[in-house]
Nucleic acid binder design. Structure first.
Length: 262
DNA sequence: ATGGTTGTTTAACAA
């Protein structure tokens, strides 16, 4: 099974990107974040036409929104809510073989990395704390996958400059700590770093504001694929499809891919 | 220290 996660930064003006990625990669399952569209206005037909007969959407107007496009049948679609907020950041389905798939768009956290003065940063930390508590109650021996834009770059090699980003939201020690607790709570295995040496710099997001994103290469690894221990031996390959960052009207995030022997 | 770019929705706001 080939699975892609991609923050598409609004699905409606970027359908051509999904078409192009499907032509290049032929994935079985695509998990999207930041679809920025309410469910009634989601472009189902063009995505069905691409071969994704099974689509589960969880959107809202203008902000956030997640969706799962699949060639394989999906069961048990669930929408999950955190921090007592009625937004659209987390959905789950069950894939054939009983594999539970979670698609998450974690709050970005605003600019100021201080929960006392920045409610968005407080929300981000609380979201991870609540997730950690919930995952601790679930059985990690079940086959599960968690993907998404988690808006945290945990390793020093997940950012272009560890030193220069220590006080920048996405790489602060307090975020990395919360992120680590969420990961440890369910013994999640980082499927991408299982295949790509953690010593090697690896990014999935580059700001639109750079004149030349590739030349400056000031990236961060914000998009992740995690699996529970039963699936860890089944990771065949993992990769960031960086070339998509150069496509016309690109998202600021690149697709992240994993191939699992399931 | 500041500004740089996108999308959504229409003057900001979020990222």
């Amino acid at each position: 099974m080939k699975l892609v996660t991609w923050n598409i930064n609004s699905i409606r003006p970027r359908l051509h990107l999904i078409e192009r990625m499907v032509a290049a990669e032929d994935p079985d399952v695509i998990c999207l974040q930041e679809t920025k569209v309410e469910d009634g206005k989601f472009p189902l037909e063009p995505l069905h036409a691409l071969g994704f007969a099974h689509i589960e959407q969880f959107g809202m107007k203008a902000y956030h929104g997640v969706a799962i496009l699949s060639r394989l049948p999906l069961k048990d679609h669930a929408r999950h809510y955190w921090c007592d907020i009625d937004d659209a950041r987390h959905q789950s389905v069950t894939l054939p073989g009983g594999i539970e798939l979670h698609n998450v768009y974690l709050p970005s956290g605003g600019d100021e990395p201080d929960p006392e003065i920045n409610p968005k940063f407080a929300h981000k930390l609380r979201f991870m704390t609540e997730q950690a508590g919930w995952w601790a109650t679930q059985d990690p021996d079940r086959p599960r996958i968690l993907v998404g834009d988690l808006n945290v770059a945990p390793l020093e090699t997940d950012v272009w400059s560890h030193k220069q980003l220590l006080k920048v939201v996405s790489h602060t020690p307090v975020e990395v700590e919360h992120f680590g607790r969420m990961q440890a709570a369910h013994r999640w295995v980082d499927a991408v770093r299982a295949k790509i040496d953690p010593a090697e710099p690896l990014f999935t997001w580059w700001s639109y504001r750079a004149r030349d994103w590739r030349a400056s290469n000031r990236g961060r690894r914000l998009d992740h694929i995690w699996v529970t221990p039963p699936l860890a031996p089944k990771i065949r390959a993992a990769r960031v499809a960086m070339d998509a960052r150069d496509w016309e009207r690109a998202s600021d995030h690149a697709p992240v891919l994993v191939e699992l022997d399931v």
